[in-house]
Amino acid sequence: MTISLVPLLVCGLLVAAGVTLLLERSLVRVLAGVILLGNGVNLLIVTVGGDAGAPPLLGRSDPDRMADPLPQAMVLTAIVITLAVTAFLLAMVHRAWQLRDSDEVSDDTEDRWVRLRARRGQLGERVRARQAEYDLLVAEQRAELHVEPTKGERLAHRRTDRRKLKHRQREARRQMRRAIRAERERQALALDPELEGDD
Protein backbone atom coordinates (compact mmCIF):
# COMPACT_ATOMS: atom_id res chain seq x y z
CA MET A 1 0.00 0.00 0.00
CA THR A 2 0.97 3.58 -0.46
CA ILE A 3 0.14 6.23 2.04
CA SER A 4 -1.21 9.25 0.22
CA LEU A 5 -1.19 12.24 2.46
CA VAL A 6 -3.67 14.62 0.86
CA PRO A 7 -6.78 12.45 1.29
CA LEU A 8 -5.63 11.65 4.80
CA LEU A 9 -5.26 15.33 5.60
CA VAL A 10 -8.75 15.90 4.27
CA CYS A 11 -9.97 13.18 6.62
CA GLY A 12 -8.20 14.87 9.51
CA LEU A 13 -9.67 18.22 8.55
CA LEU A 14 -13.20 16.87 8.29
CA VAL A 15 -12.88 15.06 11.60
CA ALA A 16 -11.49 18.17 13.27
CA ALA A 17 -14.29 20.33 11.93
CA GLY A 18 -16.86 17.70 12.86
CA VAL A 19 -15.58 17.54 16.42
CA THR A 20 -15.56 21.31 16.67
CA LEU A 21 -19.21 21.48 15.73
CA LEU A 22 -20.10 18.46 17.83
CA LEU A 23 -19.03 20.28 20.97
CA GLU A 24 -21.70 22.92 20.53
CA ARG A 25 -25.07 22.95 22.18
CA SER A 26 -27.17 23.64 19.13
CA LEU A 27 -28.63 20.44 17.77
CA VAL A 28 -28.35 21.63 14.17
CA ARG A 29 -24.67 22.29 14.59
CA VAL A 30 -24.21 18.98 16.33
CA LEU A 31 -25.92 17.31 13.40
CA ALA A 32 -23.68 19.18 10.98
CA GLY A 33 -20.75 17.99 13.05
CA VAL A 34 -21.95 14.42 12.84
CA ILE A 35 -22.25 14.66 9.07
CA LEU A 36 -18.79 16.18 8.70
CA LEU A 37 -17.33 13.60 11.04
CA GLY A 38 -19.12 10.87 9.14
CA ASN A 39 -17.77 12.13 5.82
CA GLY A 40 -14.29 12.25 7.26
CA VAL A 41 -14.48 8.76 8.67
CA ASN A 42 -15.99 7.36 5.47
CA LEU A 43 -13.16 8.88 3.51
CA LEU A 44 -10.74 7.42 6.01
CA ILE A 45 -12.14 3.93 5.54
CA VAL A 46 -11.73 4.12 1.80
CA THR A 47 -8.36 5.81 1.92
CA VAL A 48 -6.65 3.54 4.40
CA GLY A 49 -8.48 0.47 3.12
CA GLY A 50 -6.47 0.28 -0.05
CA ASP A 51 -4.85 2.19 -2.84
CA ALA A 52 -6.76 4.25 -5.33
CA GLY A 53 -7.42 2.33 -8.51
CA ALA A 54 -9.85 1.51 -11.22
CA PRO A 55 -13.54 1.10 -10.49
CA PRO A 56 -14.24 -2.46 -9.39
CA LEU A 57 -16.27 -3.44 -12.40
CA LEU A 58 -15.55 -6.85 -13.86
CA GLY A 59 -14.80 -6.79 -17.51
CA ARG A 60 -14.23 -3.03 -17.52
CA SER A 61 -11.16 -2.73 -15.36
CA ASP A 62 -8.04 -4.75 -14.92
CA PRO A 63 -8.59 -6.86 -11.75
CA ASP A 64 -5.05 -6.10 -10.55
CA ARG A 65 -5.54 -2.35 -10.72
CA MET A 66 -8.97 -2.26 -9.10
CA ALA A 67 -9.58 -0.36 -5.92
CA ASP A 68 -10.51 -2.60 -2.99
CA PRO A 69 -14.30 -2.99 -3.17
CA LEU A 70 -14.85 -4.08 0.41
CA PRO A 71 -14.25 -0.68 2.05
CA GLN A 72 -16.52 0.78 -0.59
CA ALA A 73 -19.31 -1.55 0.39
CA MET A 74 -18.78 -0.67 4.04
CA VAL A 75 -18.87 3.04 3.34
CA LEU A 76 -21.97 2.70 1.19
CA THR A 77 -23.77 1.14 4.11
CA ALA A 78 -22.47 3.83 6.43
CA ILE A 79 -23.61 6.62 4.09
CA VAL A 80 -27.14 5.32 3.95
CA ILE A 81 -27.29 4.94 7.70
CA THR A 82 -26.04 8.50 8.13
CA LEU A 83 -28.75 9.68 5.76
CA ALA A 84 -31.44 8.03 7.86
CA VAL A 85 -29.94 9.41 11.06
CA THR A 86 -29.90 12.87 9.50
CA ALA A 87 -33.60 12.63 8.77
CA PHE A 88 -34.32 11.53 12.29
CA LEU A 89 -32.19 14.21 13.91
CA LEU A 90 -33.81 16.86 11.72
CA ALA A 91 -37.19 15.72 12.96
CA MET A 92 -35.84 16.01 16.47
CA VAL A 93 -34.55 19.52 15.74
CA HIS A 94 -37.98 20.46 14.56
CA ARG A 95 -39.63 19.00 17.63
CA ALA A 96 -37.19 20.72 19.96
CA TRP A 97 -37.77 23.98 18.22
CA GLN A 98 -41.54 23.47 18.34
CA LEU A 99 -41.37 22.86 22.07
CA ARG A 100 -38.96 25.52 23.16
CA ASP A 101 -38.24 27.82 20.26
CA SER A 102 -34.67 26.65 20.37
CA ASP A 103 -32.71 23.66 19.25
CA GLU A 104 -30.32 23.90 22.13
CA VAL A 105 -29.53 20.68 23.92
CA SER A 106 -30.36 21.53 27.49
CA ASP A 107 -28.80 20.06 30.59
CA ASP A 108 -30.44 17.35 32.56
CA THR A 109 -32.54 18.89 35.31
CA GLU A 110 -32.29 15.93 37.65
CA ASP A 111 -28.52 16.17 37.65
CA ARG A 112 -28.72 19.84 38.52
CA TRP A 113 -31.09 18.82 41.27
CA VAL A 114 -28.49 16.45 42.67
CA ARG A 115 -25.94 19.24 42.74
CA LEU A 116 -28.41 21.43 44.56
CA ARG A 117 -29.08 18.75 47.10
CA ALA A 118 -25.36 18.30 47.66
CA ARG A 119 -25.14 22.00 48.42
CA ARG A 120 -28.08 21.73 50.73
CA GLY A 121 -26.48 18.82 52.48
CA GLN A 122 -23.41 20.90 53.16
CA LEU A 123 -25.51 23.69 54.58
CA GLY A 124 -27.35 21.19 56.71
CA GLU A 125 -24.11 19.91 58.13
CA ARG A 126 -23.16 23.46 59.01
CA VAL A 127 -26.50 24.01 60.74
CA ARG A 128 -25.96 20.85 62.71
CA ALA A 129 -22.47 21.90 63.71
CA ARG A 130 -23.78 25.23 64.92
CA GLN A 131 -26.49 23.50 66.88
CA ALA A 132 -23.87 21.36 68.58
CA GLU A 133 -21.83 24.46 69.38
CA TYR A 134 -24.86 26.05 70.91
CA ASP A 135 -25.54 23.02 73.08
CA LEU A 136 -21.98 23.15 74.27
CA LEU A 137 -22.31 26.83 75.06
CA VAL A 138 -25.41 26.26 77.11
CA ALA A 139 -23.74 23.46 79.00
CA GLU A 140 -20.73 25.67 79.73
CA GLN A 141 -22.90 28.49 80.91
CA ARG A 142 -24.79 26.17 83.13
CA ALA A 143 -21.57 24.94 84.66
CA GLU A 144 -20.33 28.53 85.01
CA LEU A 145 -23.42 29.54 86.89
CA HIS A 146 -23.16 26.72 89.36
CA VAL A 147 -19.90 27.73 91.03
CA GLU A 148 -21.28 29.61 94.00
CA PRO A 149 -20.13 27.69 97.02
CA THR A 150 -21.83 28.88 100.22
CA LYS A 151 -24.89 27.05 101.27
CA GLY A 152 -27.01 30.04 102.21
CA GLU A 153 -26.24 31.95 99.10
CA ARG A 154 -26.83 28.94 96.96
CA LEU A 155 -30.52 28.74 97.70
CA ALA A 156 -30.98 32.47 97.17
CA HIS A 157 -28.89 32.52 94.08
CA ARG A 158 -30.39 29.49 92.60
CA ARG A 159 -33.61 31.21 91.72
CA THR A 160 -31.92 34.21 90.13
CA ASP A 161 -29.42 31.94 88.51
CA ARG A 162 -32.15 29.91 87.03
CA ARG A 163 -33.87 33.01 85.75
CA LYS A 164 -30.62 34.33 84.35
CA LEU A 165 -29.85 31.00 82.80
CA LYS A 166 -33.26 30.74 81.29
CA HIS A 167 -32.96 34.21 79.89
CA ARG A 168 -29.60 33.53 78.36
CA GLN A 169 -30.80 30.24 77.04
CA ARG A 170 -33.78 31.87 75.46
CA GLU A 171 -31.58 34.51 73.94
CA ALA A 172 -29.15 31.97 72.59
CA ARG A 173 -31.96 29.84 71.27
CA ARG A 174 -33.47 32.83 69.55
CA GLN A 175 -30.16 33.61 67.91
CA MET A 176 -29.79 30.03 66.96
CA ARG A 177 -33.23 29.88 65.45
CA ARG A 178 -32.58 32.98 63.47
CA ALA A 179 -29.39 31.48 62.14
CA ILE A 180 -31.12 28.25 61.31
CA ARG A 181 -33.92 30.04 59.57
CA ALA A 182 -31.45 31.99 57.51
CA GLU A 183 -29.76 28.80 56.53
CA ARG A 184 -32.96 26.99 55.86
CA GLU A 185 -34.28 29.72 53.68
CA ARG A 186 -31.57 28.83 51.28
CA GLN A 187 -32.71 25.29 51.27
CA ALA A 188 -35.61 24.53 49.03
CA LEU A 189 -36.39 21.22 50.61
CA ALA A 190 -35.91 19.87 54.10
CA LEU A 191 -33.13 17.39 54.59
CA ASP A 192 -33.81 13.75 54.41
CA PRO A 193 -35.69 13.28 57.66
CA GLU A 194 -34.72 9.63 57.87
CA LEU A 195 -31.13 10.64 58.26
CA GLU A 196 -31.30 13.33 60.90
CA GLY A 197 -29.56 12.86 64.21
CA ASP A 198 -30.39 10.02 66.51
CA ASP A 199 -33.23 10.85 68.82
Binding site: L89, M92, V105
Partner: peptide, 28 residues
Amino acid sequence: RIRAGATYTVMALMSSMLFLIALAVVYA
Protein backbone atom coordinates in the same frame (compact mmCIF):
# COMPACT_ATOMS: atom_id res chain seq x y z
CA ARG B 1 -37.85 12.76 26.01
CA ILE B 2 -36.48 15.10 23.40
CA ARG B 3 -33.78 16.20 25.80
CA ALA B 4 -33.00 12.63 26.78
CA GLY B 5 -33.18 11.61 23.15
CA ALA B 6 -30.65 14.27 22.22
CA THR B 7 -28.23 13.06 24.89
CA TYR B 8 -28.71 9.47 23.91
CA THR B 9 -28.52 10.00 20.17
CA VAL B 10 -25.45 12.16 20.29
CA MET B 11 -23.59 9.72 22.50
CA ALA B 12 -24.68 6.77 20.41
CA LEU B 13 -23.49 8.56 17.30
CA MET B 14 -20.17 9.22 19.00
CA SER B 15 -19.90 5.54 19.68
CA SER B 16 -20.81 4.67 16.10
CA MET B 17 -18.21 7.06 14.76
CA LEU B 18 -15.59 5.57 17.03
CA PHE B 19 -16.58 2.13 15.86
CA LEU B 20 -16.21 3.23 12.24
CA ILE B 21 -12.79 4.70 12.91
CA ALA B 22 -11.82 1.45 14.56
CA LEU B 23 -13.15 -0.46 11.57
CA ALA B 24 -11.08 1.65 9.22
CA VAL B 25 -8.01 0.92 11.30
CA VAL B 26 -8.84 -2.77 11.57
CA TYR B 27 -9.33 -3.22 7.85
CA ALA B 28 -6.27 -1.19 7.01
